[in-house]
Structure formats: structure tokens, C-alpha cells
């Protein structure tokens, strides 16, 4: 990797100061950034190691919500008893990502900034607008089985790779950011940007701005929730499609639902259209299917990924069915 300076600030102000320099990057667990640096895709001049900052706890919020420090390791988040009980989908989402070794390293903040696994993004010999703006996109007419089908643009079809973020999107999570101008809060669903003409800009983070925490509002519906990930092997693979869903049914009617999709869009995809159609409707399979199909109606598919719309639909239906019957999905 390109030589760089390494600093490990002791407090958040120093970290933000250090990262204000051009060419500086924050480093958390390193599981994505170190890989990208070795590949030459990320070439920071200064690496600001934030793992010494005190953002490594999960704390209760009034009313039953949780505040998750940005430096909480993925494995610690997944094992947290409160998360397991209040937001089971979040624990499942984390545990379905990567491997145990990587989860022991990766941080929540880093996970939000995970970059796509589109193979053309990773290969310097290929054209990629995200890696080199203006160079073109080899994925459009190349292998695009893993590519996104919602929210894509003519310049980029790369899918967002995170599992954790899909659950966060479903749970109305709010991201806390700290910069030189102070602290601000952004809904997770607004944190990641769609590619448009600038696929290299992936989030709303300002230069030098640091993710310090993610807050989960109380969500009783989330106690009945699931994360279902569909992939090419049984473990240790990125999602083809994933579904984060929470469901409340009373007297056969859907009274509350949270639904988000992974693997299908350049960002974690909150399925607001499906949610709108589901609430107040019957808790049955045909209603689930209609809602899912409506959400996927805008899908824009390419040579290899046309199956994703049907797969996403089937996975939404299966997950909601499981949540409404309380039974084993199998």
C-alpha cells in the first residue's frame, strides 16, 4: 500500500483535527479500509486511528431505545442482550455478515462506510466510475449478477454490501456525526447517497466528519423481527438479497411493519412503498406478495441480475410469513 502517516489521537477533538487535513482517513477495525489500501483503491496520506476513542459502549436510551457507540465491535453488538431481545433482526444481520474473525475486528462506524464489492471496483484494469470518476462502468455490460436493481444510475450499478445497515435502515436508526462544526444527526436512510452522476460520493459525510454513534429509537414491533440473507453459499458470502423485517399483526391485520432490503440497491433500501401497502391490510401471503412486487416495480435489471427482483419478492414474502406465523421459516 502507499506509504502513509499513522496517528492515534487520544480524544475526539484531536481526531477531527487530524482528519481535517486533505488525504486523511479514519481507521476503525480496518477490515475494509486496509483491504482497499492494499489494493491501491484507497490511498490516504494520513490514517487517523480512532479505536482509542471512548465510543465503544451500547447504552440505554429513555423509552427503550439504544445508543450504539461507533466503535462497538460487530461481535459485541450482536451479542448484546438488549439487542438480542429488542432488535433481534439487528443481531442476526450482524451475525450473517463476514466471519467471526472479521466481526471481532469490524466496528459499527466502519460498517456504515463499507464500500461496494462490485468486482470491477476492485480491479484497476477495469473501468469504474466509483473508483475513477468519468472512466466508465464495466459492470453495465459485464458480470453484474451481484449488481443493484433499485436506485441505480447510468454511471453505477454497484450494490451496498452491508448487512448491519439494512437492519439499521429498517429500524429508523439515526447516525450521529461529529465534525469541526459540531454534532449533527442524520437518519440512516439519508446517510448513504444514491450514485446519480457522482457514484464516488457515497455518504453525506463532510470531509473530516466522524461517525460517533448510531441511535435506535424504541420500536416494540422490532421484538418480532428477522433478518434473512440469501447468498451463494451457506455462510461467509455477501448477500444476493437480504430482508430485514419486523411485523406486528392483530386480528389478521398488519398493524405495524418495518422492512428494508439489502443486496439490491446502492444503499440499504428502506421499502417504504411496501410498508405503506402492508399496514392496515390483511396479514396473508397474497398481500405480502403484492406489497413486495410494488416495491420492486421500479427495478432496473441488467444481463445477470434480473432474478433479483423475483428473489427479493420471494424473500420478503417468506420473511413476513415467518414473522406472522411465528414458525420456523423452513
Amino acid at each position: 500500500m502507499k506509504p502513509f502517516a499513522y496517528v492515534k489521537p487520544a480524544d475526539v477533538e484531536a481526531a477531527i483535527q487530524a482528519a481535517a487535513q486533505p488525504g486523511a482517513r479514519f481507521l476503525g477495525g480496518g477490515t475494509n479500509l486496509v483491504d482497499l489500501m492494499r489494493e491501491g483503491i484507497e490511498q490516504p496520506d494520513t490514517v487517523v486511528d480512532v479505536t482509542g476513542l471512548p465510543f465503544d459502549t451500547v447504552d440505554d436510551l429513555p423509552g427503550g431505545g439504544l445508543r450504539i457507540g461507533a466503535l462497538v465491535r460487530n461481535s459485541a453488538l450482536a451479542a448484546d442482550r438488549r439487542v438480542r431481545e429488542r432488535y433481534p433482526m439487528l443481531s442476526q444481520a450482524v451475525l450473517s455478515g463476514a466471519s467471526a474473525q472479521l466481526r471481532n475486528m469490524a466496528t459499527v462506524g466502519g460498517n456504515l462506510l463499507q464500500r461496494t464489492r462490485c468486482p470491477y471496483f476492485y480491479d484497476h484494469a477495469s473501468a469504474c466510475n466509483k473508483r475513477e470518476p468519468g472512466r466508465g462502468c464495466d459492470a453495465l455490460d459485464g458480470f453484474n449478477r451481484g449488481a443493484a436493481i433499485l436506485g441505480v444510475s447510468a454511471s453505477c450499478v454497484a450494490a451496498h454490501p452491508s448487512d448491519l445497515c439494512v437492519a439499521l435502515a429498517a429500524l429508523d436508526a439515526v447516525v450521529e456525526l461529529r465534525g469541526q462544526d459540531g454534532t449533527r444527526r442524520v437518519p440512516l436512510t439519508d446517510f448513504h447517497r444514491l450514485p446519480g452522476d457522482t457514484p464516488e460520493v457515497e455518504t453525506v459525510l463532510a470531509p473530516g466528519e466522524l461517525v460517533t454513534a448510531v441511535e435506535l429509537p424504541p420500536a416494540p414491533v422490532a421484538a418480532n423481527s428477522r433478518y434473512r440473507k440469501v447468498r451463494d453459499r451457506a455462510s461467509y458470502a455477501f448477500a444476493l438479497v437480504s430482508v430485514a423485517a419486523a411485523l406486528e399483526v392483530r386480528d389478521g391485520v398488519v398493524t405495524d411493519v418495518c422492512l428494508a432490503l439489502g443486496g439490491v440497491a446502492p444503499r440499504p433500501w428502506r421499502a417504504t412503498e411496501a410498508e405503506r401497502l402492508l399496514v392496515g391490510g390483511p396479514a396473508d401471503e397474497s398481500a405480502y406478495r403484492r406489497a413486495a412486487e410494488a416495491e420492486l416495480a421500479g427495478a432496473s435489471t441488467r444481463r445477470d441480475n434480473a432474478f433479483k427482483a423475483a428473489l427479493a419478492t420471494a424473500t420478503i414474502v417468506a420473511t413476513l410469513r415467518e414473522l406472522s406465523t411465528g414458525g420456523d421459516p423452513r
Binding site: 480496518g30 486496509v34 466471519s99 474473525q101
Partner: peptide, 19 residues
């Protein structure tokens, strides 16, 4: 490359030694 760091298994290839 799995090793134990403070008792936790990690992938040493993605860990910078300085960390």
C-alpha cells in the same frame, strides 16, 4: 492468518501491526 489478539480471534492480514 487467524491469530488470537487479547483472546479474540482476528484476521491478522487485515490488522495493521501498529493498531
Amino acid at each position: 492468518c487467524t491469530v488470537l489478539a487479547d483472546g479474540l480471534r482476528i484476521n491478522a492480514c487485515l490488522a495493521l501491526a501498529v493498531q
